[in-house]
Amino acid sequence: MIVHIANPIYDSVFKYLMEDERIAKTILSALLKKDVVSIAARPHEYANENRDKISMFSIDFAATVREADGKEHFILVELQKTWLETETLRFRQYLGAQYSDKRNIDRNSHEGYAIPMVTIYLLGHRVGDIEEPVVYVNHDSYDYDGNMITKGIPDPFIESLVHNSIIVQIPPLHGQINNRLERVLSVFDQTKANADDPHILSLDENTYAGDDNMEYIVHRLTEAAADSDMRQNMNVEDEYYSAIENRDTAIMNRDKKIKEQEKEILEKDKKLSEKDSQIRSLALALKDKGMSLQQIASLTGIDSERLKAILGS
């Protein structure tokens, strides 16, 4: 049976989705490839940064995760979502704020070590020529000869200064479900968007039969699709981004026109320089034959003052 869900690419829908603790644990467990035992959104961390330029929706979580060996530890998860292309400086600025936030220091650490952090980027656009929808960027430690260091790793000092990242490219999600993560991310698959209404994705609920967590996610998104306030919020986002795209298109066209004008000016300057060089060579040749500047000007039809400038005299 086909069900219609609200499109979680929209900030309002995504926020509604991630506010549910069970869903947040399900999505983050799949992304981290670890069992998220407990999770809590950091207070006052919902934000739409720099509305005048881009949308960079951010949520920070504090999570207890269980490793494959059964050990549990506490981490911070910084989740950022954008559906417009943006310069990486925006992400770095937000990341810098997290590094300098005193709340992210482990209070049980006498040395003042930071709580280990993982950053997750949900992108509504592709990154260069990378084809994989999900990219894991993990740090390792090496000695001078390139040998991996394992003794003493992970170390709290190193973990305080570097972090792992997960980059999700939403466009390459094309409905193939080969693992748990792809199943979870399938609710973001934009190829399932309704042709007449991009607010809605159409999913085959049989795909998730027997999977309680996924059925729960689909049910919450189905509720969102039927909520009039949510639909209005998506309309507002469409209007906002349409205005941004129109503005950016105008800026792009203006910049293109300026570049074309600059190119024309450079070509004219080049031709003028070449012409001046030819005139200078001719004037010098005539001057060597004993002709005066006035005679050369009369012969060439070039003003005496310009001849002086060309000849440098």
Rank of each mutant, 00 (worst) to 15 (best):
L76M: 04
I27G: 01
R51W: 14
A68M: 10
V65E: 05
L17W: 13
I27A: 08
E78N: 12
T82L: 01
V65I: 10
I23T: 12
F14T: 05
F57M: 07
T26P: 01
T86A: 10
F61T: 01
K53H: 11
A47D: 13
N50W: 11
A62L: 14
A24Q: 00
V13Y: 06
N50H: 13
H73M: 00
G70N: 07
K15G: 06
T64A: 09
T26N: 07
K34A: 12
D60I: 13
D35K: 14
K71Q: 10
L17H: 00
R42C: 13
K25V: 08
Y16D: 03
L76D: 04
D69N: 13
I39N: 09
E45W: 15
A41N: 02
R51T: 15
F57C: 07
G70M: 08
H73Y: 11
E67F: 01
K34P: 02
S38K: 11
V36L: 05
A63K: 07
S58T: 15
V37I: 15
E78L: 05
R42K: 13
T64Q: 15
E87G: 03
L32R: 09
S29M: 05
A47T: 07
R22C: 09
D60P: 02
D69R: 01
I39Q: 04
L76S: 02
K25E: 12
E67Y: 05
R22N: 10
Q80M: 10
V77D: 00
A63L: 06
R51F: 13
E45G: 14
E78P: 00
V36F: 08
E78F: 00
V13K: 04
E67G: 03
